[in-house]
Design a protein around this nucleic acid. Structure first.
Length: 851
RNA sequence: GCCCGGGUGGCGAAACUGGUAGACGCAAGGGACUUAAAAUCCCUCGACCUUGGUCAUGCGGGUUCGAGUCCCGCCCCGGGCACCA
């Protein structure tokens, strides 16, 4: 097969055609059904990586598919342009973050265009553009007016040498990434947005998101973490202070043997003033990270404050501990502890010799056995004074009522979700539109946008804005806030701004009401909670400002899996690993194709397999999409990424697989070009012989499968079905019907593949005289007549095991099928001497004889 | 630690509501074409024994005429955890 398939030329020509015809420009048209398809916009890191290619190919396939269904499709693209990497690059290379970011955007845009994605570039936006961020500043001032934004103290990672706040990412093994200093926890004043006011609505509305993957809905429910419990006050012995705690297990109240407070809790601080060892303990607790994973996995430590809390029911004193696992930022910064019925409390009590008081046992009366571990199940109360004999559920209410009557506590619904801390002590972000008065009061800036000064170089110690009086000092003695927004703030509403990208009088206009909600959102599973929850929240804030009408931003969500690849390394004398790119590694295989040994191509010496990992610089297992596109063309890269795995699973990269995809595109090309004359002059298939009928049946069976798979976004099997079609058409015997079957088959095939491999199908569609523009060609339909068969093959099972195959007329009834099955020689052998007890027939599939 | 996924040939995977396990492709082996190579085309390809069977979807149980699919209990791998995006 000789081909002159030249992806470079036909892809450039197709892209030129789309640009000339403004094929992807989206216009509001209330008479047409709209479809808004959105892929998560990239952070402009400089180069597209395979994760982007996968994400955007999935989005583009869906957008083009919907368009071919006749919908009015909007597919925009933009840039999540603020963020830490720009500052890191600035520190390393001495370039202003703005310059670095904008040049990256230019590079990445060129790469996206090369891949042939059908974006409406007229709506492009970058979040670092003042025309964009002025509107989130405006919304924030509205939130301040409504009391939905407020200031409070919060814990951050503090680098004592660089005198700067560190992101979790910048804390490595408890030390600052640049200074190497031990990181401390520090409380500083921060801005928060009251997402907890919307917690119940955010939770309830999850039930309406039936176009979202169940696992994402579960994660969001867990993240919001609604719990029903009781808040109550413990008096402090010998003081008129009270200590407030919250518990979801008030039924265990009678088993409380101690109370724990955060190291930063006022009670602990106060006790430390006359206990130097406690002061040291509190100081120790300040070291270590602030992330949940770190706090949960670190060694649980405590220190007796020497004061006691009074049990609200028994009046008995219980010791108060300061503990490193209690966080000041959660609830009240204090917890009641029941070692007998909570595993963490149990371990803590073991360590510090605190008594365990069992008060719950299972309903059957068996002892609860707390010697080895806590008994954490619900059950029946004992040794609980007035509450003896109640079930846990009854005791919940009884104890809550008992406390409420005495003014010591109340039932309360709590959420794990905390208010969203939106301020960051960083330069490359959107400035908070806040002005500080001299008396520590604040007011909202009215003159928007507050422009971020660009062309500043950062050096890694603190924010340069704090040293820039031109920015923060105002003539009347007031000062401007130098914090910037969390970059999640920008990414929480960009989907809406695309609709009204050029509107300079408001955040959004009526066009947003035409396009929203997004019909299909596509992005990484790593955003399952944070970004997707913040965006849902932001949408409700905009709704409450009258900017949008619907309640939820994303009707359907597709979370694609990661792109992973093999890793290979060698260890040097010091035990350090050096990673080699899989492209430099050669495999040696045995005659069954099994891997025997792998060597580095450069020196022929062995390398060690390091597992399959997410593509990353640190493991040197990345593949450059641009090099690949230049070598094989965008269609092959797109086809490969769609074919190798279903979208929601991880995709394991394999260079030989790309070769296979390239082979298929060339095979399609040579089939179409080789038969071009026949196809051009053919009409609808007529005068079908048996072979032609079989071929049509196979084509339409594959089409039926492919259409179903498009709908459920399982593109890998759409490609499989296309491959089957090519194989069928290649084997087509000469006959009077041949040209007609070819024309129909290739016509189906090209349209089926058009969303996935748009360039080659665009070219061939025109070349074969099938039409002017395949984008407007409509969608192929299954011919039910072509699927019909005279005889149906049945699998014959005996006791559930396959023993034979029989062919029966399509209209055969159960008796006829059974008779045919029993007539089979093999089946007869297994039935011989037994009596038939039962016969199960699955129509058109199988018959099971139970004997 | 908590939460969420995933384990099917040498490899990526398929199997629509329980109904022929391995479609489609990669790798591998054999053959054709060619002076040769590349490209292309054809055949074989889960394991084990003798046509014909037996075993096989991470492991151990269960439900069913029938289980990759449903239920119970384990093991292993990956992702997220609030200042990475």
């Amino acid at each position: 097969m000789q081909t002159d398939y030249d992806p470079r030329a036909i892809e450039a020509a197709a892209q030129h055609y789309w640009e000339e015809n403004q094929s992807f420009r989206a216009l509001e048209d209330p008479s047409r059904e709209k479809f808004y398809c959105l892929s998560m916009f990239p952070y402009p890191s400089g180069r597209l990586h395979m994760g982007h290619v996968r994400n955007y190919t999935i989005g583009d396939v869906i957008a083009r598919y919907q368009r071919m269904q006749g919908k009015n499709v909007l597919q925009p693209m933009g840039w999540d342009a603020f963020g830490l990497p720009a500052e890191n690059a600035a520190i390393k290379q001495g370039i202003p973050p703005s310059q670095w970011t904008r040049s990256n955007i230019a590079d990445m845009k060129a790469q996206l265009k090369q891949l042939g994605f059908g974006y409406d570039w007229g709506r492009e936006l970058a979040t670092c553009d003042p025309d964009y961020y002025r509107w989130e500043q405006w919304l924030f001032t509205r939130l301040m007016e409504k009391g939905l934004a407020y200031r409070a103290r919060a814990t951050v990672n503090w680098d004592p040498i660089d005198q700067t706040v560190l992101a979790n990412e910048q804390v490595i093994d408890g030390r600052g990434w640049r200074s190497g200093a031990l990181v401390e926890k520090r409380e500083i004043e921060q801005w928060f947005v009251r997402i907890t006011d919307y917690a119940q609505e955010l939770l309830d509305a999850i039930d309406t998101l039936d176009g979202w993957p169940e696992r994402v809905r579960i994660m969001q429910r867990n993240w919001i973490g609604r719990s029903e419990g009781v808040s109550m006050d413990f008096a402090i012995a010998g003081s008129d202070q009270v200590l407030g705690i919250y518990t979801t297990r008030p039924d265990t109240l009678m088993g409380v043997t101690y109370v724990a407070v955060a190291a930063e809790h006022p009670l602990a601080r106060e006790a430390a003033t006359h206990d130097p060892e406690l002061a040291i303990f509190i100081e120790e607790c300040r070291q270590g990270g602030t992330s949940e994973a770190e706090i949960e996995t670190m060694e649980k430590k405590g220190y007796r404050l020497g004061i006691h809390a009074v049990h609200p029911v028994t009046g008995e004193p219980v010791p108060i501990f300061a503990a490193n696992f209690v966080l000041m930022g959660y609830g009240t910064g204090a917890v009641m502890a029941v070692p007998a019925h909570d595993q963490r409390d149990w371990e803590f009590a073991e360590r510090y010799g605190i008594p365990k008081r069992a008060v719950i046992r299972s309903a059957d009366g068996a002892p609860c056995g707390i010697e080895q571990a806590a008994f954490t199940e619900r059950g029946v109360l004992f040794d609980s004074g007035p509450f003896d004999g109640l079930t846990s559920e009854q005791a919940f209410d009884a104890i809550a009522d008992w406390l409420a009557e005495r003014g010591k506590g109340d039932k309360r619904i709590n959420f794990r979700l905390r208010d969203w801390g939106v301020s960051r002590q960083r330069y490359w972000g959107c400035p908070l539109p806040v002005i500080k008065r001299s008396n520590d009061e604040v007011r909202a800036e009215t003159d928007l946008p507050v422009r971020l000064p660009e062309d500043l170089v950062v050096d890694g110690s603190g924010s340069p804005l704090e040293r820039m009086a031109d920015f923060y000092a105002l003539p009347n003695g007031e000062t401007r806030e130098t914090d910037t927004f969390d970059t999640f703030f920008e990414s929480s509403w960009y989907y809406a701004r695309y609709c009204s990208a050029d509107c300079d009088t408001a955040m959004l206009d009526e066009r947003a009401r035409y396009w929203l909600p997004v019909d299909q959102y596509v992005g990484g599973i790593e955003h399952a909670v944070l970004h997707l929850l913040y965006a849902r929240f932001f949408h409700k804030l905009m709704r409450d400002e009258g900017l949008v009408e619907c309640d939820e931003p994303f009707a359907n969500l597709l979370t694609q899996g990661m792109v992973v690849a093999e890793t290979w390394f060698r260890e040097d004398a010091e035990g350090r690993k050096h990673w080699f790119n899989p492209a430099e590694v050669e495999a040696e295989r045995d005659d069954k194709g099994r891997l025997v040994r792998a060597v580095l191509a450069a020196d022929g010496q062995p390398v060690t397999f390091g597992g399959v990992e997410k593509m990353s610089k640190s493991k040197n297992n990345g593949v450059d999409p641009q090099a690949l596109t230049e070598r094989y063309g965008a269609d092959t890269v797109r086809l490969y990424t769609m074919f190798t795995s279903p979208p929601d699973q991880s995709l394991e990269w394999n260079d030989e697989g790309v070769e296979g995809a390239f082979r298929f595109v060339r095979r399609l090309w040579s089939l179409a070009i080789g038969e071009a004359e026949a196809i051009r002059s053919a009409t609808v298939p007529t005068a079908l012989d048996e072979a032609a009928r079989d071929a049509r049946r196979e084509i339409h069976t594959a089409l039926k499968k492919a259409l179903f798979d498009y709908e459920r976004h399982q593109f890998n099997t759409v490609v499989s079905a296309s491959m089957t079609m090519v194989n069928v058409l290649y084997k087509l015997e000469p006959s009077p019907a041949r040209a007609g079957v070819l024309r129909e088959g290739v016509g189906i095939l090209l349209r089926l593949l058009a969303p996935i491999a748009p360039h080659v199908t665009h070219h061939l569609w025109r070349k074969l005289g099938l039409g002017e523009d395949i984008l407007g060609a409509g969608w192929p339909r299954v011919d039910e007549e072509a699927l019909k068969q005279d005889a149906v093959a049945y699998v014959v099972q005996v006791n559930g095991k396959v023993r034979g195959n029989v062919k029966v007329p399509a209209d055969a009834d159960k008796e006829a099928i059974q008779a045919a099955a029993l007539a089979d020689e093999q089946v007869g052998k297994f039935i011989a001497g037994k009596t038939l007890r039962k016969v199960v027939v699955v129509p058109n599939k199988l018959i099971n004889l139970v004997a």
